[in-house]
């Protein structure tokens, strides 16, 4: 019984390991954020580092609605509208007022 339980758990875990990486694509908001925004917003970049918790979700909404980034730099040549929408969704999902996981020693 114990062996079969371990086997079931192992097989399910193995299946997830094998198939899940295939789902990776450019739709990953965090990856896009790090790759696109991180070009300038980095320690060696021209702009300060920031994360999604810089603003609450409604502030991010306003930021994108008013196209505030364009006041400092027009990034339309570097980030497509589709990519911008994905980054926006990521930032809002992880904003300062988002529902964050809690565990000991977890920021």
């Amino acid at each position: 019984m114990k062996k079969s339980l371990f086997l079931i758990v192992f097989l399910i875990a193995l299946g997830i390991f094998i198939f899940q990486p295939m789902s990776y694509s450019g739709r990953d908001g965090e990856t896009l954020f790090l790759n696109k925004c991180g070009n300038c917003h980095s320690e060696s970049g021209e702009a300060p580092i920031f994360g999604p918790v810089k603003y609450a979700s409604s502030q991010w909404e306003r930021f994108f609605k008013r196209k505030k980034h364009n006041r400092k730099k027009d990034i339309s040549g570097e980030v497509t509208d589709e990519e911008l929408a994905i980054i926006k969704e990521y930032l809002i999902d992880h904003a300062a007022d988002s529902d964050r996981p809690i565990a000991a020693g977890l920021r």
Binding site: K2, L5, F6, I8, V9, I12, A13, I16, F19, Q20, M22, S23, R27
Partner: peptide, 22 residues
């Protein structure tokens, strides 16, 4: 104890978890 969890398998909206304790 062991716990495995995937919130969204292959972007399908399907989540799974499994836990085992001895």
């Amino acid at each position: 104890t062991m716990h495995l969890q995937v919130d969204d398998i292959l972007g399908s909206g399907l989540g799974w978890f499994g836990a085992f304790g001895y």
